[in-house]
């Protein structure tokens, strides 16, 4: 499905028309006001509002929309936490298993990240839990706060390459600090194609961490 643009006297009216045309509900679409209208006197000289309505269409599962519900759940949780912030849907990569990325934006959101991103992880975990219970399928929702996760992942990739070089030159393995699954994954992926080192997750639960091992000279 593609996005459509509708003009009407009010934003609500335009959205209603668009929804009827798309056959979707409000929670299943993203609405952008393309042009603000102007309310003239008794309809004289007034300008219509123009909105662009885009179906979220994420992991569309027989008409039900995972992305739309995830956004709603996130917004509910934020409001119950007493944190004024807005939720933006990020660009999604193609593919059925692709993550549905959300970025939360607002002021002073450090409290939402927590120590080592623990609060953010809990938030993401619960959103996925709620959405997957509802749809009886994996949700794949990734929640970020002001691009925090993105920056963290980039610094982990940098760290991984630096440590790989170190392992290569010293021949000695290194073990990193314990990390959540998503962060370990970033490091595994970053070094996957390295001809010199290999990575391994060791330990259980919260203390699970990555070891970077030298492949040695024996391999051809």
């Amino acid at each position: 499905m593609e996005s459509i643009e509708i003009s009407a006297k009010s934003e609500e009216e335009a959205v209603d028309i668009a929804l009827a045309e798309l056959g979707l509900s409000r929670s299943e679409v993203e609405v952008v006001v393309v042009k603000r209208g102007r309310g003239g006197l008794f309809g004289l000289g007034s300008e219509e509002v123009r909105v662009r309505v885009t179906p979220l269409g994420l992991l569309s599962n027989e008409g039900v929309d995972v992305g739309g519900m995830a956004k709603e759940v996130l917004e509910n949780l934020l409001s119950l936490l007493g944190i004024p912030a807005s939720v933006n849907l990020g660009a999604r990569e193609s593919g059925e298993q692709a993550a549905i990325p959300f970025d939360i934006v607002g002021e002073d959101l450090g409290i939402l990240i927590g120590r080592r991103g623990e609060t953010l992880s809990s938030l993401q975990y619960l959103v996925n839990l709620i959405v997957s219970r509802h749809f009886k399928a994996r949700a794949g929702v990734v929640v970020d706060v002001e691009g925090y996760r993105q920056r963290r992942y980039e610094s982990l990739q940098f760290l991984a390459r630096r440590l790989a070089d170190q392992v290569r030159s010293t021949g000695r393995s290194v073990t990193l600090e314990p990390m959540p699954a998503g962060e370990r994954r970033v490091i595994h992926l970053e070094l996957r194609d390295s001809p010199y080192v290999t990575t391994q997750s060791i330990g259980q639960g919260d203390s699970r961490k990555i070891a970077i091992l030298s492949k040695g000279n024996s391999e051809a």
Binding site: L81, G114, S122, L123, L126
Partner: peptide
């Protein structure tokens, strides 16, 4: 499993409490 859900709820509850 391993109290994971309860732990996540407690983490968010802490945030809500701090806000208040």
């Amino acid at each position: 499993k391993e109290g994971r859900i309860a732990k996540a709820m407690r983490t968010l509850l802490r945030v809500a409490a701090i806000r208040k």
